[in-house]
Amino acid sequence: MTNPVNLTAEEFIYPGNRACSGCGLSTLYRIGLKALGRDSIFVVPPSCLTVMQGLYPIAATQIPSLNVTFASTAAAATGVRAALKARGKENIKVVAWAGDGGTSDIGIQSLSAAIERGEDFLYICYDNEAYMNTGVQRSGTTPKGAYTTNTPIKGKIQKNKDLPTIIAAHNPTYVATCSAAYPLDFHNKILKAISLKGMKYIHIHTPCPSGWGMEERLSITVGKMAVNAGLFDLYEVENGKKTLSGPSAKLLKRETLPRIDEYLKAQSRFRMLSEEQVAEIQAEIDAKWEKYRQEMA
C-alpha cells in the first residue's frame, strides 16, 4: 500500500517552473514521475505541460522529453516506441502526456489510430476542462454551462465528451481515471499500467485555479468535491469490465451523495449556471449512480 511515508522522496522535476501557483497537474505530474522513474521518454504536445516542463534552454523536467505538434502526440509516441523496439531498448517506458484539448479535440484522431494499431505506450490525458494554456477556451471536455473566454456570456452550450468511455470503447489494454486529489491512486495506477503491454490510457482530473476561478489553495479540496459528489469517478476498465476505485467505490454504499452545489459554487466559471441547470447536473449524477448501484453493488 503506497502512502506518503513509503513513497520515494526522489524528485524528477525541478521547482521554480512555470506552472501556475496551485496547479493540479503539477502535483500529479510530480507524484506520477515517482512511479515512472528515469527510464522513460515523454512525448508532449503544446499544452500547460509544455510550458511547465521548461522553456529553452532550461528544462524543469529531468526526463528526456520530445515536444511535438499539437495533433501528433500519439503518432510521435508511436514513432518513439518503434525506434526503441528497433534498437532493442524496449525497457524504456514511453509516456505521452497531453491536455484535454490535445486529446479530445485535435489529438483524438492519432490517439484513436494508435489504439487501433495496438501500439505499446502509456497515454495520460490531463483534463483541466478547457484549453488552459492559451487562456481558458472551451474544449471537448469543458462541462456544460462553464464560462470560458469563447463562451463568455452563455457558457458552454454543449455537454462534454466522455473521453474515458470513448477510449474504453476502443478496447485498449487498460483505461483508468484519476484525480489530483488522490495522487497515490494515480501513482499506483501508473505502476499497474506500465506493467502491461499494449495501449494504456489514464485520464486525470487536474483542477485549475486559474481557469476554474477559485483560490489556489482549494485545488485539492475542489478535486475531492468532484469525486465525492460522484461527478468525477475514479475507475479502471480492463477486458471490458469497469471497476470503481477507492474513494469512488466507497460511494456505492451510500444511498445519497453530497450535492454537487458546493463544487459548482466554489468555482466562478460556473457562476452563470441557473438553478435548472444545476438541477440537471445533479439529476445526471443521480441517474449515473443509480445505474452503478444496479450494475456493481
Partner: peptide, 12 residues
C-alpha cells in the same frame, strides 16, 4: 501522423 512517426523515431 506519418511524418510525426518519423519525427518520433528519428528523435529516439
Amino acid at each position: 501522423s506519418a511524418l510525426a512517426v518519423c519525427i518520433g523515431a528519428a528523435s529516439a
